[in-house]
Design a protein around this nucleic acid. Structure first.
Lengths: 156, 156
DNA sequence: AAATATTGTAACTTTATAAGTAACGAATGC
DNA sequence: GCATTCGTTACTTATAAAGTTACAATATTT
């Protein structure tokens, strides 16, 4: 299939929404993402259900941010998209009878699971707001290291 | 596309090859992997080029191991397959003009790169022989921790 | 030498899934 | 009423691995 580019795309869209004064239509967002309005509506639907954005119909309608970007982690966005399959690699079968096949699957899964955890942890460490404030992440992590806790969202 | 199952499949095949007294034909391996001989030949070709297995034609021919499994890491096998694409996720474009899109891509790539490193490290830590000797890996790692170095392959 | 077994390789079809596209009803604002 | 915009469904396209078919090349057996 085509490479799944939904995550970077909606991140891109969120960053534009933050800068917008008025609702952006699917048409406008589609131009920013080099795609068409229908796909934008489909892809943004999950973010709406998660409460990160809102949409209104009719004249003057479109998409708006419902929550500040520093309250939304990349992990939140990924989850809102339905946590799409990360890997193009997989095991050979679900519950094979052959012990050797099971051993091969186990090893493959172990490596993939470890990679998935790293991916997830990386997504959790970063808010969408961090993407356009390159120094903000380091500052926040330094804070966490000192206090030993994750600061409340919204504080900056 | 279909999920890429080449890695677990060739691992499975290698484990069977180790147990075999005589060359295994693509036909036989195909039955073990629930696939057909032609696909086996195609998939094993990389392992042959890497010198991990050998193949001979004609009556009595087939596939044999050329190196002991404790000298072959999962990373070696993955590389011999041509290091197939790990992720079904990707960025939205290669070098977009929009700064926000670049930021979105950068963040996506960072998480993927971190995950890929974890995956690669995990593959490097494990030899194919480890798959069927569940305790061997822990023993070897303990050894590495004590001596601070990776033991020569072949020593067990 | 002929028959048989087996790999090597090329060409083609199938499958799965996101992207892309088109269409239209529903809701909203002018 | 009319134009705008989303919500949703249905359909087509693109991509890459799996799966399949076919056959030349090579090796063994008789």
């Amino acid at each position: 299939m085509r490479t799944d580019s939904r995550l970077p795309r909606v991140l891109h869209a969120l960053l534009h929404l933050e800068q917008a004064e008025e609702p952006l239509t699917s048409e406008q967002i589609g131009k920013m993402l080099n795609t068409n309005p229908s796909l934008v509506r489909r892809t943004m639907a999950g973010l709406r259900e998660a409460g990160f954005v809102g949409s209104t119909r009719g004249h003057g309608g479109g998409w708006v941010l419902e929550r500040p970007l520093n309250e939304i982690t990349l992990a939140d966005v990924y989850a809102a998209l339905g946590s799409p399959e990360l890997f193009s690699l997989g095991r050979s079968g679900d519950a094979p009878a052959c012990l050797l096949e099971r051993a091969a699957n186990r090893a493959t899964s172990a490596a993939l699971d470890a990679a998935r955890e790293t991916f997830q942890a990386e997504l959790e460490r970063v808010t969408v707001a961090d993407l356009v404030r390159p120094h903000a992440r380091e500052i926040r992590e330094h804070q966490e290291k000192r206090t030993g806790k994750v600061p409340e969202a919204g504080g900056q």
